[in-house]
Nucleic acid binder design. Sequence first.
DNA 1: TCAAAGCAAGTGTGATCACAAATCAAAAAT
DNA 2: ATTTTTGATTTGTGATCACACTTGCTTTGA
Lengths: 242, 242
Amino acid sequence: MQKAAIERNNETIAAQLTPVGRETVQDRVYSELRRALIGGLFEPNQVLTIRGLADALVTSTMPVREALGRLITEKALEALPNRSVRVPPITLERIDDLLRARSLIEGEAIALAATRMSQRQIASIEAMLGEWDEMRALKHKKDIDREATLNQSFHFEIYRCCGSAVLIPMIESLWLQSGPCIRVAIYAFSDAGEVDTAHYHRRIVAALASQDAQAAREALVADISRPFAYLRDKLQSTKELT
Amino acid sequence: MQKAAIERNNETIAAQLTPVGRETVQDRVYSELRRALIGGLFEPNQVLTIRGLADALVTSTMPVREALGRLITEKALEALPNRSVRVPPITLERIDDLLRARSLIEGEAIALAATRMSQRQIASIEAMLGEWDEMRALKHKKDIDREATLNQSFHFEIYRCCGSAVLIPMIESLWLQSGPCIRVAIYAFSDAGEVDTAHYHRRIVAALASQDAQAAREALVADISRPFAYLRDKLQSTKELT
DNA sequence: TCAAAGCAAGTGTGATCACAAATCAAAAAT
DNA sequence: ATTTTTGATTTGTGATCACACTTGCTTTGA
């Protein structure tokens, strides 16, 4: 067979196949733990053991310990002097600290995105807004997990447009760190008659549509401040009780 | 022996002993690699092998691979699809990206520090300035490693005063990422008659002493911009040649 | 009755091995 | 002479084991 013919044949096959990928076990463990952390499935102060997680995830200890090590360097988990690892506790200082960092960095990211997003990209996140309303319409069963996932997609869809390969991982790290905190706040929102999250998101989309970077930044800060403010009040009041 | 006497005896001993610490091998490997990365001892695009590093550091592969994994999540190293790991390459976009992120975050950190630093703390970094001049006085042997270390201490001594446990690790990650880049710039500065680094640092100290957050931010941005600007020009000119 | 010592189960760390995939060089084929 | 194939070496990954340290409980002693 001639060279050109072989080449052509291979290309034809390649076009029809989707890459199978080579995700390692460690990668899967890492992703799974990330998902759990951002989703707030672990409680603050909860201690995690390597063998325990390995059993739960049905693998050996090796991938788990490396995934845990990576999460510790991201400050998503905390290594105690006992060498055991736990989900970081919530303190008032930490809440303020996280909110400040998130406002700074995510604010910058959305400001950059505001000047770069194409009509097509804006339409895409606007569509997510619609999906949100749809979900709320039939919200008899308050699907909080789905809501959190949608919220995450909405934000990161925007951040991805900022064009910075450096800022995005930092934002991911910040979400990882605030995940266990804000989960309790989201629960409370859902119970308390649901202050309109969609309203804040609409404000963000409007600012992006008009390419107003400053307005977008402010709308975003308002959006992410809410759960933190709530959590802050709650923590302060429970502290007064003790 | 009575209980009180034993207690007293133990306390006497404790006062004379210094804690021995329990640093693991993995921690030492991690620190060593960090040091090398920030110091620019590794070249961009250089690939690192687990067994190679383990031999160089005289340990087994286990602590090395976990340390590498941690550095990869910090974006200090890059995992290729081949599963080999390398020092990230320098591109023009990455340089601008890193500088923007560093200006944003380190600028915020120093602005916070400006409002919080005590007289004692300011005096401490002012003393480092003197140490710098001292070193430059007898700089026949241009000790570039020492200069880089001193520069790092100067900056982080300030950042540590910002009171944010969230921002500091991010700044460390940014230094880790820019280390391999700026090393080449520092070399060039040292050769090119040494534009006065100390001048920029004095500007920073002056701003901090007068608690002028905005001035401190601007002085810092000016300081860290220099090597990046130099590197940018150099990269652009070599690119034109090819 | 209560504190201290002892014991047993559990946990993180590091070393080593097996295996699959990648890399490289020499040999073979066109 | 260029390309392909083959085989040997290197490399990352995951599993397993040994060891030291921690923890919680039981037992012992005053």
